[in-house]
Design a protein around this nucleic acid. Structure first.
Lengths: 216, 216
DNA sequence: ATATTTTGAATGACCATTCAGCAAGTATGT
DNA sequence: ACATACTTGCTGAATGGTCATTCAAAATAT
């Protein structure tokens, strides 16, 4: 599907400002995925959206603004996705932990193009404070939630682990699995998720099997 | 220390071809760390090396060649570093595993500038097969070695874990810890190494404490 | 003298940004 | 209905700046 195709009435002049911004952000993700950060041009983005060359500056003022808006969009999407999974899961800590780990490997998030776009931003983050802040905020809330859930499991299950060390181990492993999916060396979404599930089942045998949380 | 300063007789015209190439590679790492991939220019590299604008094309033909040579240099350095640690450790699997994990967090490898340079290359790797191959080769050999060592520990210690799942968990966590050091959000080299040591002690209590391998 | 290494100005390609003008809608008046 | 003025969204050629690359000349080494 091309970024220029839209479900609502986006054709012609009718598109609202927000619709256009959305189109351009999607085209930006496409371009980042296809060409990488350093080769992504305004022309490529505009062509991808099926619009003219000046359009980005009209809606976003500058290329930099568009890129920041794109990263912001992906960060928001990521956060609302796992938070939604957390809320939908039952009240039990085990269910919640299972749900947010599953959210990390959801089909909608781990597409080739989104992973590649994240990769492009991460590569630049080290030398761009704005990107770094947006990428970093991504993980802080997630990690705090994981830590609370692991503490709850420990209290319930009588495990001997130190909660902080466990949190670090789990979160670092999840990030490492993402990293491998991004690099693409044979690590599929399913294999990564299986790796995470194996870990949970091994560390919390009283709460999980590799198939899921145990019923009570 | 600026890249232009060299221990051997690199001043003036005396420098050998290999010395010049080394200087330029170091200056490239500096520039990648300071400005990121997309803002690294030939002029910045040449200035950093204290040489003139045309010098890179004389020694490397093109910017792309210089970048590939730089990545190759870092990959070689990484590989020879952990392989050296492996060889220097005793014959016991526990000592060897401890040594190559320690090598991953060695002071010489985990400098701010090298981490930032790796970060820059990783960001572009997804859309550049040449970079991807060099980055991927980095980890394959390491992972195979880890897998063999974990299998040996399992045979010695009677642990119940599946070797492949453990290998994935450990290697993904190590990569995740690197990732966090790169992002710089408060993850120091020491803290990352401690995280890895805690993991080893928790998973293989009969072989390790957090201080190191147990004596026999 | 010849070969090798280095310089730095010139070249040309690429690209973000600008802006004058066009097109499509909307409001007001007749 | 129709005309007129005004607003908003959009276009694409022109502009100016940045950058990798080239190369003739200069400096140095053999």
């Amino acid at each position: 599907m091309k970024a220029g195709d839209e479900a609502d009435g986006a054709r012609g002049r009718k598109a609202s400002k927000e619709t256009r911004r959305g189109q351009l952000i999607e085209a930006t993700i496409d371009s980042l995925a296809k060409r990488g950060y350093s080769e992504t041009t305004m022309a490529d983005i505009a062509d991808g959206a099926g619009l003219s060359r000046g359009i980005v500056n009209f809606h976003f003022e500058s290329k930099e603004n568009l890129l920041i808006a794109t990263l912001q969009f992906m960060a928001d999407e990521y956060a609302s996705h796992w938070m939604g999974a957390y809320d939908k899961a039952g009240p039990r800590a085990a269910d919640r932990l299972w749900a947010i780990v599953a959210a990390d490997f959801d089909r909608r998030l781990c597409t080739r193009r989104k992973l590649a776009a994240w990769c492009a931003f991460w590569g630049e983050a080290k030398s761009r404070p704005t990107y770094q802040a947006l990428c970093g905020a991504r993980d802080d809330a997630y990690q705090n939630t994981v830590q609370d859930l692991l503490a709850a499991l420990k209290a319930e299950g009588g495990y001997g682990y130190a909660t902080e060390a466990l949190t670090l181990a789990l979160c670092a492993m999840l990030e490492g699995l993402w990293f491998r999916m991004m690099m693409g060396d044979g690590m599929t979404r399913e294999a990564a998720h299986d790796g995470a599930k194996d870990w949970l089942a091994a560390v919390f045998p009283r709460h999980f099997t590799t198939a899921g949380p145990k019923a009570e």
